[in-house]
Design a protein around this nucleic acid. Structure first.
Lengths: 138, 138
DNA sequence: TTACGTTGTAATTATAATGGTTACAGGAGA
DNA sequence: TCTCCTGTAACCATTATAATTACAACGTAA
């Protein structure tokens, strides 16, 4: 199972996008997510490095670097998930065995096409979509 | 990252389907995969419980319960991956917060549509396809 | 029947990822 | 200055994974 950082990161971005004021401290975000402020700051750091948000050290508040409609779940996924392969494969299958010799290449091709399908769906979901579903009345 | 059991399980099924020997012992499979025989027997057990293969205690060899063209990567994935949710979500977001209150429902919907896309691709790949790519000359 | 090889499975260990926590240096702003 | 905040290192507990040892139960050949 993929870790909950993706879910938490989306939660954070939705909070940032839905708050007009700039006083969104990690402590407040943590109380909404129900975790520790350091966990939040860690994920904020990953998203900052990925260029999704801007923060100022010492100053509460984070801002999106682009419209919520231009931040996709795939952007978030890649920001908080360092692995670029979704499926692990076993190391060093036996090259003396005809199956062992070629299996990894075939597996990697199959897995990457499946991963591409997942990523296509993730890139079709934006933070703005999430906001709209959360608050349809607005 | 998803564990390597899926990759190993496909490797095993391809070995069975390609029948290099009549009596495919876990020891032999392990030498092709490059791991321990118990790891192989554990995965064989999961696939047996999922109805993909048949084995006899005490007797070397495993057999597919249906044609290799009727066993998909999704069947394998579900056999060796007990979680039915691909993405984890954080537990107990704050219901007092408007975002915390509704975020999980929205996230789960988004994640499950992405997972469905992945599974659709996985179900379009069979063990026979893998065999054909591995040995195109046959 | 016995002997031997094999499966099925429990138990143990090592390693790594994850998430929670404490601690603290340093920035921002009143 | 004083206070709140961020960024980050360090540490811990929990869990998943994979490797490994051990052994009871089973199948087959003799």
């Amino acid at each position: 199972m993929i870790n909950s950082r993706v879910a938490v990161a989306v939660h954070i971005l939705v909070l940032i996008a839905s708050k007009p004021h700039d006083d969104l401290a990690s402590e407040y975000i943590a109380s909404s997510v129900n975790t520790n402020p350091v966990v939040i700051r860690r994920i904020l750091g990953m998203m900052r490095k990925a260029g999704l948000i801007r923060t100022v050290a010492g100053k509460a508040g984070a801002a999106l670097t682009r419209p919520a409609s231009a931040i996709t779940f795939l952007d978030v996924f890649q920001a908080v998930e360092p692995d670029n392969s979704l499926f692990a494969v076993h190391e060093n299958p036996n090259p003396q065995c005809p199956v062992g010799k070629g299996i990894l290449a075939v597996l990697e091709e199959a897995f990457s096409s499946a991963q591409a399908a997942l990523e296509a769906k993730l890139s079709a979901q934006t933070i703005q979509d999430t906001l709209d579903r959360l608050f349809p009345e607005r």
